[in-house]
Write a protein that binds this DNA or RNA. Structure first.
Lengths: 152, 152
DNA sequence: TGTTGTTAGTTACTTTTGTAACTAACAAGG
DNA sequence: CCTTGTTAGTTACAAAAGTAACTAACAACA
């Protein structure tokens, strides 16, 4: 019997791509992102970074771009662009900080607060659907494991 | 006591971003990707899509771009660009298929096979480190859950 | 053969991201 | 005050990804 080149290269003990966690992470992140965020984008014209920033502002109250950037691990240029986009949508206002005139206090305006409420409601619905899909126990386990991986 | 605007917007039952699975997926995927693939890129000058294609070819033997695209869920333009890059690196050769002259058989050349061996060894090392970090049981559980999320 | 519809792969164009360099403001020390 | 060094945020440029339209080849059928 003739062995093909894949057999030669790949003894059976060499592992499948589907056993490679970073690959699976990517696949899963993309798939979930497509379900939620692309959907959201089409409906509300918001980019992922934008609603992340929105979410942080809504959740934590007024913050500077720097604080958002650190707390969300988003690069400052990305935050800067998202802030401008949200400002153009009248979702937030900036006020130069009195103590340090380099930085700005960002705060949600009423339309931004409204968008935030809709966004977090959608997020909760999504999360509930996921729990139904995976089961409560596994959904929780997944979040726990992802948190552990997200830190380093 | 004065409540701040975040309290008004956000009764305590509204959930944290850190309870939102797509967010955690993204954070984890980015963090892991930075550890492995960025590293690999700097060392071997290969883009993520490129080593994904390489991996598929190494694992499954000769394939067409279409087959890779389907089996890896990578858009065909991305595959096309990765194939060209790998060809320029002399990692693979294309042969127009005799049965259907639209499609091409892609096969790894020796340098590509060598790169693939190094790549899969690195991937295995990485996976082993992850198992040490999470524990064997949790690492397996994570892969299982990610697979379930990656499908839909 | 000629027409219509489909498919593999590429190319052109647009959007988004990453990287580096920049501006303006601050801070500490001389 | 006047360096020197640092920081918040922006901008300019380059790299990557997504989208759409294209070419060449096929297939089926009149």
């Amino acid at each position: 019997m003739i062995k093909n080149s894949a057999d030669d290269l790949y003894p059976d003990d060499l592992f499948e791509l589907s056993a490679f966690t970073p690959y699976l992470l990517n696949q899963a992140a993309e798939a979930q992102s497509d379900v939620f965020s692309r959907n959201y984008r089409d409906r509300y014209g918001m980019l992922r970074t934008e609603w992340r920033v929105l979410f942080h502002l809504g959740r934590h109250g007024d913050m500077s771009a720097k604080e958002i950037s650190e707390s969300a691990s988003i690069h400052k240029t990305k935050v800067s662009r998202a802030v401008r986009a949200l400002e153009e949508k009248r979702f937030l206002a900036r006020v130069t900080s009195a103590e340090d005139r380099r930085s700005e206090r960002l705060s949600l305006r009423p339309p931004g607060q409204e968008a935030f409420r809709r966004l977090s409601a959608a997020a909760q619905d999504y999360e509930a659907a996921l729990e139904r899909h995976l089961g409560k126990r596994d959904a929780r386990k997944l979040r726990e494991l992802l948190k552990r991986l997200g830190q380093p």
